[in-house]
Amino acid sequence: MREMIAALGRFGLFLLRILGAIRPSRSQWRDTVRQIYVIGARSVPIIAVGGAFVGLVMTLQGYRALVTFGAGNALGTMLSLTVFRELGPVLTAILFCGRAGSAMAAELGLMRATDQITSLSMMAIDPVGKVVVPRFVATVISVPLLTAVFIAFSILAGWFQAEFLLGVDGGYFWASLQSSVDLWEDYGQAFVKSAVFGVFCALIATHVGFHAKPTPEGTSVATTQAVVYGSLMVLFLDFLLSATLY
């Protein structure tokens, strides 16, 4: 228990250090834009493919369940609410942890192992502001946008399967989706969740990478911790946010 409390304190202090190192400088903004491309734009293919397959599976399983009760036309409602409220933000954050979170931890771990972070400190350059802040800000911006991509591909794939493979009328599908999705209750809160997930995914990945032991084993451990801790934190926060928001 003491170790857990100490770890929470270290993460909290590191977050304050990150927030204090954010500067409206041209170099930091340039590095942030580059990180948005590296960890955000390059994650679009896996997010899009993952969202499409989730939409296909949810449509197939949901149709079988709804037809049993004679409610096949409510397929759009079931798919949209499930994807917006739970699967979209959660699976996007978990996929992001596996793809980009591990990469951030590995990069920072290698920088620690090769003394690049120490060299920045010796040159009077804040290493947190130089290498951590751009990755942190880019993650907070990218995860909500990737969530939108995941949701869009899930719904489009679900509509395609519902209309062309299962025989559900497309008008009923889109009408039920439009009538059931609320701008704030579903759409807005999905992005509140994804923004919170982005903050903690970025914090965990940068913390374990920045403080990794300067050895190849330390980098490997940091990469594993970024994925495992980040995914578990996403599931834990999803429960808290769902209980609070809904």
Rank of each mutant, 00 (worst) to 15 (best):
L56P: 03
L120S: 00
T219A: 12
M122Y: 13
R85V: 12
M233P: 09
A162C: 11
M123K: 05
G9P: 02
R42W: 09
V137S: 07
M104F: 05
F150I: 04
V49R: 04
T215Y: 13
L87Q: 00
G170F: 08
S25F: 10
A6D: 14
A212P: 03
G50P: 01
A93C: 13
F96M: 06
L120P: 03
Q178E: 13
F136W: 00
P134N: 04
V227L: 12
V132Y: 01
T223Y: 00
V128R: 03
I141T: 02
D169Q: 15
T206F: 06
V149P: 06
Q28G: 10
G109F: 05
G167E: 11
G218H: 03
S25M: 08
L56D: 05
T244F: 15
V57G: 06
L108R: 06
G40M: 05
G76Q: 08
G198D: 06
M111R: 00
V132K: 01
G20V: 08
S119F: 04
V149H: 10
Q178M: 12
A100H: 04
G70Q: 10
P45E: 07
V196H: 00
L156Y: 09
T59V: 12
V199S: 02
M111F: 05
V38S: 00
V181P: 14
I18R: 04
V228W: 08
S194G: 02
V57Q: 07
G188T: 06
V199H: 00
L19K: 05
A190N: 05
A113S: 10
G12L: 06
H207A: 08
A103N: 05
A226P: 11
G98R: 02
F239S: 12
L166S: 14
L15P: 00
F14D: 04
E185I: 13
A148E: 09
F84L: 13
D186C: 07
L245H: 15
A106P: 01
L110A: 14
L183G: 04
G40Y: 01
L60V: 11
Q225S: 13
L60D: 09
V57A: 11
S142Y: 03
I36L: 09
A41Q: 03
Q189T: 09
F210C: 07
A74I: 05
S231V: 06
L75Y: 07
Y187V: 14
R23I: 10
P216W: 03
A7C: 14
I125H: 01
E107T: 09
E217N: 13
V133Q: 02
T68Q: 15
G198V: 08
S194T: 03
F236S: 14
F150S: 06
G12N: 05
S142N: 06
G158L: 12
F210I: 11
D238Q: 15
V128Y: 00
Y229P: 11
V208W: 00
Q28K: 11
L145Y: 04
A152Q: 13
A205C: 07
A103I: 03
G9N: 05
